[in-house]
Design a protein around this nucleic acid. Structure first.
Length: 563
DNA sequence: GCCGTTTTCGGCCCGACTGTTTTCAGTCG
């Protein structure tokens, strides 16, 4: 059992206890534990084996015993009991924005509703608006959010899909007779969410591969089975589709499987127009670049294969030289224990250094964000003093002073200019009043960008994938302003944000706007999420020069001070 | 349920916004 799974159980346990009406602090303790486990940089199992569970903060005697129970039996009695007491549909209900345990409990009591489907039906029949504390607006909001969720049903976030794919790939590779295994489909193209996990396997014995995977502990059941392929349901909900081919045609199969469909069709059109198609050569040990070469095209990386002009650009030899992960020289948005992060500045810096970075900006929350223990002005100064001291002890790495300053509802910043002026990296973000109308929200962001002390706008649209739409925003005007003022926009690499999106980041690039690819890490583990952000950048056609944190430290600092 | 040079019980405990009300409960970051 992996950290994320244990963390998820404690998270749901907290939700269930909240529905039950358990004491606030007990619920919070489970939430804290869940967060700590999800952010742990080593497998919980290792700490458990080594008898070090009690060394982990927020894990006390009780929760350690529950982790022990989970790792020993694979189950948690208390959790199972609560699941029986409260239908799982109720858990889904309280994850809807605007609907918490109280209202969900009341809806259940008054109308007997225990699932999203029933709730949607009741909303459509206008039966929610007459309940105490609910009205027409809440009813509309509930229905809108259920429909948003259903429209994305079954689509997994990249990290979950990637982790499952990696685990299954590792398993399949060890099977006798299996020569190669690769994930294809939208996962290989690093699309922001993934429908099915597509795996292409080179083997002469399809049946053994299918049977073996059917027995894997991640697999819940088999959905379809054919001679050279099968589809499975995993225990996490996401489906896995297997395509098994002889080794000689593996590359071709992977290429087709990777898609996108539109990209593939366009290339097929080119192929059919060719005068001397040399298709016979497409066997044996070829690579994907040989497929493109056969069409007189340079290699097109998977991230670009969306039929968004990449084939035309390849024909005209003007494909971008896409930014690569190893070009990233630092992370410009990281939280420490000074606000709501879980790791100390030194720990974060050590890990950043180990990644080969040259710098990292510590950007803790500003004073108004109380829930995140936003820093008072005094604390902020104190932190920056600490950072300056730490920098004296090292020459090959630079910790940059920073802040993630709230853009307050009226557009003013949550920190005086004279303080901001002295800070290396100022990330400005919206964390409150998300429901402002489009005009107000746009003006709010514009006001922040106009401030010359602001370097970067953090997670510019505020969306949470599969959870919440971004705030109402005239992004076109925001982009125009960013171009005018020279404000950097963030690509937030967290898999549940990926904000800006690939499409919007490409629009930004076309306007000459620079981007920063940041993890927004709140713990050591999430410093590892940079590849997701780089993938968004690549899907946005970004080159190294478009991304500010590919610059060496000195050049970056000069760039940030230019305004 | 966790935590402890304010130790083994009692503290932990924000504050704005929203939609519903007509003074506030529920939700959320």
């Amino acid at each position: 059992m992996q950290n994320e799974e244990i963390a998820r159980i404690f998270h749901e346990l907290a939700d269930l206890l909240e529905i039950k009406g358990e004491e606030y602090f007990k619920i919070r303790a489970y939430r804290n534990a869940s967060r700590i486990l999800a952010g742990l940089d080593e497998p919980v199992k290792e700490a458990w084996k080594g008898g070090r569970l009690n060394k982990i903060p927020s894990i006390g005697k009780n929760i350690a015993a529950k982790i022990n129970e989970l790792l020993t039996t694979g189950n948690l009695k208390k959790y199972q009991e609560l699941l029986e007491e409260f239908p799982p549909g109720l858990l889904a209900m309280i994850t809807l924005p605007g609907l918490g345990p109280k209202k969900a409990g009341m809806i259940r009591e008054k109308l007997g509703i225990t699932s999203l489907e029933e709730l949607a039906a009741a909303a459509r029949e206008k039966r929610l608006r007459s309940l105490p504390g609910l009205g027409v607006r809440t009813e509309d909001e509930i229905l809108r959010n259920i429909e948003l969720r259903q429209s994305r049903a079954g689509r997994a976030l990249l990290d979950l899909a990637g982790n499952i794919a990696a685990e299954l790939t590792g398993y399949l590779e060890l099977l006798p007779g299996v020569a190669r295994v690769e994930a294809g489909g939208s996962l290989r193209r690093w699309k922001e969410t993934v429908g099915d996990i597509d795996l292409v396997v080179a083997s002469d014995d399809p049946n053994t591969v299918i049977e073996s995977l059917a027995g894997h502990y991640r697999i819940a059941n088999i959905l379809e089975k054919g001679y050279d392929g099968a589809k499975f349901q995993t225990k996490w909900g996401i489906a896995v589709e297997l395509e098994i081919v002889p080794e000689e045609v593996f590359t071709l199969a992977l290429f087709r499987n990777t898609g996108s469909h539109a990209h593939f069709e366009k290339l097929q059109g080119l192929f059919e127009k060719k005068e001397n198609p040399a298709a016979a050569a497409l066997a044996g040990k070829i690579g994907e670049q040989d497929i493109y070469a056969m069409l007189d095209l340079p290699y097109i990386p998977p991230e670009l294969r969306e039929d968004r002009g990449e084939v035309e650009a390849a024909l005209e030899r003007r494909l971008p030289d896409l930014v690569k992960l190893d070009a990233i020289k630092g992370d410009l948005h990281v939280h420490s224990t000074w606000s709501d992060g879980l790791a100390a500045i030194e720990q974060l810096a050590d890990k950043a250094k180990a990644k080969g970075y040259q710098y990292m900006a510590v950007t803790d929350h500003s004073r108004s964000l109380h829930i995140a223990r936003g820093l008072s002005l005094d604390k902020l100064q104190e932190q920056h003093e600490v950072i300056r001291e730490l920098n004296k002890k090292q020459e090959d790495f630079r910790i940059l002073t920073g802040i993630e300053v709230d853009i307050l509802p009226k557009g003013e910043l949550d920190c005086p200019d004279e303080v901001l002026k002295e800070i290396d990296v100022v990330v400005a973000s919206v964390h409150s009043a998300f429901k402002q109308d489009r005009e107000t929200m746009t003006a709010r962001l514009l006001a922040a960008m106009e401030n010359r002390n602001v370097d970067i706008i953090g997670h510019p649209t505020g969306r949470l994938l599969n959870q919440r739409e971004g705030y109402a925003l005239d992004l076109e005007r925001v982009l125009e302003a960013a171009a005018d003022y020279g404000t950097i926009l963030e690509i937030n690499a967290s898999p549940n944000r990926l904000d800006l999106s690939d499409v919007n980041a490409r629009r930004a690039k076309e306007k000459g706007i620079k981007l920063a690819i940041n993890t927004d890490a709140h713990d050591l583990k999430r410093l590892d999420e940079m590849p997701y952000g780089v993938a968004v950048g690549r899907r946005a056609w970004l080159e190294e020069k478009d991304v500010v944190n590919t610059m060496p430290a000195g050049k970056l600092l000069k760039y940030l001070r230019r305004r």
